[in-house]
Amino acid sequence: MKSILIIDDASTVRLYHRSLLEEAGFHVDEAVNGIEGVEKALSRTYDLFVVDVNMPKMDGYAFLREIRRRKEIHQSPAVMVSTEAEEKDRQRAFAAGANFYLVKPTKPNELLEVAALMTGGRA
């Protein structure tokens, strides 16, 4: 079973993404900010990170930069999920280490397609 780590400070977003992804057959873990995300990413291997931008303590950009420079973390793809639709925000996400960019609020199909694509097929 492919596993996904959702990093988002909004519990409703985590719940929504979790229920969609679990229904599609993924194992899902959650973190409320980048620091907890790093802790979880150090503790097990994930096939995909779904990362919010604005979070307290450590935001999504800082999380991506942090996991990308750590050799001990499995370098799986990351989807940044942002409230911003502008090109400069997209570029910033890619520069920090994201592999895909989705604009919030996410549509169920978008998230599921990206998850399937990024994890190399269905869960």
């Binding site: 909004a10 519990s11 409703t12 977003v13 409230t83 919030k104 609020p105």
Partner: peptide, 13 residues
């Protein structure tokens, strides 16, 4: 704005 409303909904729960 959907994202402003989404943030408020999260807290209203």
């Amino acid at each position: 704005h959907p994202n402003v409303v989404a943030t408020a909904l999260d807290l209203l729960g």
